[in-house]
């Protein structure tokens, strides 16, 4: 009879070999999945932020048609399940582009790969939520700030860049950091359209090794680690954004 400690040690050894970076282990596959998840989220972020900013501008414009266009956008992308948005972009955009190309008489293979589809879909969702964050930040900035800018002879653009934007970043940062965490989690959905992210890689490993609990547990821990890392980074950014307030 083996002593239970030995049994645990053997189990641990087995787990470690399953997670190793050798050809039989799944460590390298999971690491590559982690890379895909992180790079997808990072690639989506700038587009999502920029789009969200412009949509917020449109939403607080005095022009009703601009507000309407922006509101339709956010209604759609905040109302659809993210998974469905992903399918619509992945299959739909492809079909649409294909039909457009054949309509224009272009004979070529046009492909929107899973990464780009994921970026567009997640970016659309991210930007519609981000626009709300930016909008409430805009509303928190008193109108006197704009007037002050114009009074000293700055153009609208300069006022925006030099006076409004720095305050906006500070006000929007907590909301945006929340959205970043949501984005990070939403990337898990791209596994369904075949992108080899964390979830897909551990799913394959779980099926082959029949150690589903171990591998999906690892996936959860990886997402937690990413979330923790993000909060550390956001802590730095927030302190940096407030650096002028601290000097008093």
């Amino acid at each position: 009879m083996t002593c239970p400690i030995d049994g645990i040690a053997i189990e641990m050894d087995r787990f470690l070999s399953l997670l190793s970076f050798s050809p039989d282990g799944w460590g390298d596959e999971i690491a590559s999945g982690l890379l895909v998840t992180v790079s997808l989220a990072l690639a989506t972020l700038p587009f999502g932020l920029a789009a969200g900013f412009f949509i917020a501008l449109a939403k607080q414009s005095s022009e009703p048609s601009l507000r309407l266009a922006a509101n339709i956008y956010t209604t759609i992308f905040r109302g659809l399940p993210e998974l469905l948005t992903l399918f619509l972009v992945f299959y739909g955009a492809q079909l649409g582009v294909q039909q457009l190309a054949s309509f224009l008489g272009i004979e070529t293979a046009i492909e929107i790969n899973a990464f780009v589809a994921g970026m567009v879909a997640l970016g659309a969702v991210f930007s519609s939520y981000a626009s709300e964050v930016f909008l409430s930040a805009f509303r928190a900035i008193p109108h006197g700030q704009y007037e002050g800018g114009w009074a000293v002879g700055l153009s609208s653009f300069q006022t925006m860049r030099l006076i409004i934007f720095p305050q906006l970043v500070r006000l929007a940062l907590p909301g945006l950091s929340n959205l970043w965490l949501i984005l990070l989690k939403d990337t898990a959905l791209v596994s369904v359209i075949g992108l080899s992210d964390i979830i897909r890689q551990v799913g394959i490993a779980a099926r082959v090794t029949r150690e589903a609990f171990l591998f999906f547990g690892i996936a959860c821990l990886l997402y937690l680690a990413l979330a923790m890392l993000s909060s550390v980074v956001f802590g730095y950014i927030e302190r940096w954004a407030r650096r002028t307030e601290d000097v008093k």
Binding site: A50, A51, F54, A58, A69, V120
Partner: peptide, 12 residues
């Protein structure tokens, strides 16, 4: 919307 359509256009 404006930015995104530009972006998706650029991407496609």
């Amino acid at each position: 919307m404006p930015m995104l359509s530009k972006v998706s256009l650029a991407l496609s």
